[in-house]
Amino acid sequence: MVAVVTKRYQILQYVSWMEPVGRRSLADQMHVSERIMRTDIDFLRQQGLLDSSKSGVVLTARGRDVFTSMDQFMNEMLGVQDSEKQLAERLGIDHVLIVPGDADQSARVLDDMGTALAQTMQVMLPLGEQIIAVMGGTTLARAASRMNFQLSAGRELTFVPARGGVGETVAIQANSVAAAMAQSTGGTYRVLYIPENVSEETYQPLLNEPSVKEVLALIDKSSVVIHSVGEALAMAERRRMSDDILQLLRDHHAVAEAFGTFFDAAGNVVYKIPKIGLRIKDLDQIPYVFAIAGGQSKAQAIQAYMQHAPKQTWLITDAGAAQSILMG
């Protein structure tokens, strides 16, 4: 997939240098057949990034904006590609993007990871209807502010919370993140109001509520998932979990949390919060899965969770976490 992103960026780059340019000239420049180039140009034209005439292929106004916004990002991405390949291989997933810096040292790095997420989605997501299931958390709340209306051009975006409500600050709950992403992109959103830390006997009747059933049906149809990976004890404390659960997590040396599941460093499941919505095993059937987490302090958590992540996962992280994992 990284190769696909790179190729599409390079097509935009060559067109910006040579426009109007013929399809055969582009194919020669990129050392591919004219048939393959036609397929790529057709895709970019459907995205509204290129236009064709008798004179040749040119960038549209939107294509110029997208190319400009991608330029610095792609230069950085191509510069660290070796590290990304090494990290992807180490974690057993197909895709890794690394942004410079360490989120532990500067919150600005969270914004850069959010920008990388938005740009990757812009290039990779098909046109048409896309249901995007999102988790909560500070990282995703920051990522929401980096999205823009370009993502919804040619796409009908619906954002839904991936799981029921959690005991966090309202601004970073999944419902709030879904709403913020919808506002940033011009999409729509749905909310799922399910209380945290209730018994199965309590939440089972909620499954029959029409509003809950509607959102759960959308979650089941989601084609995109965006989530983060948290440090186990920090997540448990932020969710105000009981002292007994906190002690259990300490006793079992939990280091990571994702989708309400806590893991030790070896990837063993330590504890699960009974919740409604997506589970980790559901991710195998979802085409586009984006995990965004950074900072050296999250390196161990990322490694623990990635033992359960589906292979098609895109991990968007920073140099602080990446170097810690690769040198560990």
Rank of each mutant, 00 (worst) to 15 (best):
T60D: 06
A143I: 08
A143T: 11
N75T: 07
R90L: 10
I132D: 02
L315E: 03
L249S: 05
G294C: 07
M74A: 01
N75I: 08
N75W: 08
S297K: 13
V4P: 03
T139N: 01
V224T: 10
R23C: 05
R250D: 01
D282C: 14
M241W: 07
Y305M: 13
I11P: 06
A291C: 14
I98G: 05
R24E: 09
Y203A: 05
M241D: 01
P195K: 10
L12I: 04
P161N: 10
M1K: 12
D112M: 11
K85W: 09
Q285T: 08
E34Y: 01
F43T: 13
Y14Q: 15
L157H: 05
I273N: 11
V177S: 00
Q285S: 15
M306R: 00
G230E: 04
S199H: 05
F262K: 09
N75V: 02
M121F: 02
Q300S: 04
H95M: 07
A182F: 07
G277Y: 04
T188P: 02
V198K: 14
A322R: 03
V289H: 03
N208A: 15
A304R: 09
S69I: 00
M70W: 14
T6L: 14
P274N: 14
V66K: 03
D104S: 09
Q72M: 07
T261N: 10
M327V: 02
Q122Y: 01
A321F: 03
E257Y: 00
V96Y: 09
N75C: 07
A182Y: 06
M306E: 02
V32I: 15
S53N: 09
M30K: 10
V224E: 07
I316Y: 08
A179W: 01
E257D: 14
G63H: 06
T185N: 10
Q29N: 11
D244M: 12
F259Q: 13
L127F: 01
G137M: 02
R279D: 05
L216K: 05
Q312M: 07
Q204W: 06
S69K: 15
A256D: 05
K298Q: 08
V198T: 10
M327Y: 02
V177R: 00
A107I: 04
V289G: 06
